[in-house]
């Protein structure tokens, strides 16, 4: 599949601090790429470099199969973006704000503004954007990004501030754009559930480094099965697991909860040993890691 966006060794330093370090990622045409990371992981800085707002300290960005030098801007007509919180002229209405963008993007069709507004369910009123709620501004930001029918959407935390219905609507919209119009979507978020439901592939960035790039099928395979135990005394249970059953791959997640990742087929033996060892077992169940678990496990080192 054609690569729409790729980076090679992308770095950004702010003085001595390295915000992004050697990021290599690829996004293919028509896919939804979720860019996951904790606060300050380097998501927005990466997006700023992808959209030409920030000069990379090192590395390259290629868009639509062509290496982009910093300062080039022609390719931006093929990209719709939200970077950080979407900014608008507060003294203008939604339509006036989008009309300014329409002119700047060189869209001759005046109806494009109305179409974009109705697509996001924004009423075309006389209300000024300064009076809009955060959610409304976010919707308007998405409407602006879609106005010129871009081939690539780069969205930084697009569902921030939206209510659950709004989130669902945006999810359906982005999914539809990718499936029906072959629009490529690159979106960053820290709302893991959203990424899980939406993205075809996921990149996890941590301390400025892209630590993993996986597709959802791979994610499915990688998500580990485990046995969750609710016990009276997790410390004593840990001791018994290690010394009587030889289980070392386990985690104490809460004071009375453990997760065992090995010997899952020996549930009866585990139960017996714990009970005979004096630890009452309240509940035992086999579960599978969610993206959230995986993400937390991947990014917990060094925290």
């Amino acid at each position: 599949m054609e690569e729409i966006l790729s980076t090679e060794g992308l770095c950004k330093d702010f003085g001595r601090r390295q915000a992004v370090s050697g990021v290599d990622l690829t996004v293919r045409r028509g896919e939804i790429y979720g860019f996951l990371g904790r606060n300050g992981a380097g998501k927005t800085t990466t997006i700023r470099m992808l959209t030409g707002l920030t000069r990379p300290t090192a590395g390259t960005v290629s868009l639509f199969g062509r290496r982009i030098r910093f300062g080039e801007y022609r390719h931006l007509e093929r990209i719709g973006s939200i970077v950080e919180t979407p900014g608008f002229y507060p003294n203008l209405t939604a339509r006036e704000n989008l009309d300014i963008h329409r002119r700047l993007m060189g869209v001759a069709d005046r109806e494009a503004v109305g179409r974009s507004l109705s697509l996001l369910g924004i009423e075309d009123t006389k209300q000024r954007v300064g009076h809009f709620s955060t959610g409304m501004r976010q919707r308007l930001g998405i409407a602006r990004a879609l106005l010129h029918e871009p081939e690539l959407l780069v969205l930084d935390e697009p569902v921030n501030g939206l209510d659950p219905a709004g989130i669902k609507e945006v999810r359906r919209l982005l999914s539809g754009l990718a499936r029906e119009r072959n629009v490529t979507v690159f979106l960053s978020s820290h709302i893991l559930g959203e990424i899980e439901k939406l993205a075809d592939r996921i990149g996890i960035i941590h301390h400025g480094r892209l630590i993993q790039e996986i597709d959802l099928e791979e994610m499915e395979r990688m998500s580990r099965q485990y046995m969750e135990l609710h016990v009276a005394d997790a410390a004593k249970a840990s001791f018994l697991l290690e010394h009587r059953l030889g289980i070392s791959d386990y985690r104490v997640t809460e004071p009375e909860t453990l997760r065992i990742y090995e010997k899952l087929d020996r549930a009866d033996e585990i139960n017996r040993e714990l009970v005979t060892g004096g630890v009452s077992v309240r509940e035992m169940k086999t579960m599978r890691d969610s993206l959230e678990d995986h993400f937390l496990r991947m990014t917990e080192d060094g925290q």
């Binding site: 707002l53 801007y73 007509e77 979407p86 900014g87 002229y89 993007m105």
Partner: peptide, 14 residues
Amino acid sequence: QDGTIRPLFATPHH
């Protein structure tokens, strides 16, 4: 101040 410089620079113009 209003953050409108980013969408301005994200348009295909010098």
